[in-house]
């Protein structure tokens, strides 16, 4: 959950978001699910949405990702698919927030597609569509060609 907050508002603000989220979870502890991560991320998402203006949020995390890219070590074997870690972080920083969020929920925060759909408040098919578009844009930023064969393959972005 802290990691999710970092990827939405940057590390300087993440502690505050985590604190607020746990305060809510404590008060509503009787309804917190047994596997609470997705629920907590959903609460954190609302905390962020209420407390941080969109533009400020975008600036915070774009700056953070770019700074990480500048200081990140070289990537490992799996990262060979894309250029390198630096490029991936810069590519994520360049994405619209809605694209970045769906990729991070699945790639960094360990949620299943169903959990991610719950967090984002959308249906599973909508999540699939969002993921497809986000992935395609990321690949484009990385300078590669997406081989996705989703419903919009070869079409124009929304």
């Amino acid at each position: 959950m802290y990691a999710y907050a970092v990827t939405r508002v940057g590390s300087a603000q993440a502690e505050e978001v985590a604190s607020e989220t746990f305060a809510i979870a404590w008060r509503r502890r009787e309804i917190v699910p047994d596997v609470p991560l997705a629920w907590l991320i959903g609460v954190a998402r609302n905390v962020i949405r209420e407390q941080y203006r969109d533009a400020l949020r975008q600036d915070l995390i774009a700056a953070e990702l770019t700074a990480w890219a500048a200081s990140a070590p070289a990537g490992g074997d799996v990262a060979e698919l894309i250029a390198d870690r630096d490029a991936l972080l810069r590519g994520l920083a360049a994405l619209p927030e809605r694209d970045r969020e769906v990729l991070m929920l699945l790639g960094w925060h360990g949620l299943s597609p169903r959990e991610a759909a719950d967090v984002l408040g959308c249906s599973r098919p909508t999540l699939t569509m969002r993921l497809h578009r986000a992935r395609r844009r990321l690949v484009r930023h990385l300078g590669g060609v997406s081989s996705d064969s989703g419903p919009e393959s070869g079409g124009t972005d929304e």
Binding site: Y2, T7, L89, W108
Partner: peptide
């Protein structure tokens, strides 16, 4: 699949700074 690989690549380069 390549789709899965992109998310796997993301997981592989997950920054340590995401940990509190």
């Amino acid at each position: 699949s390549r789709k899965t690989d992109l998310l796997a690549a993301m997981a592989a380069v997950r920054p340590d700074r995401l940990e509190p």
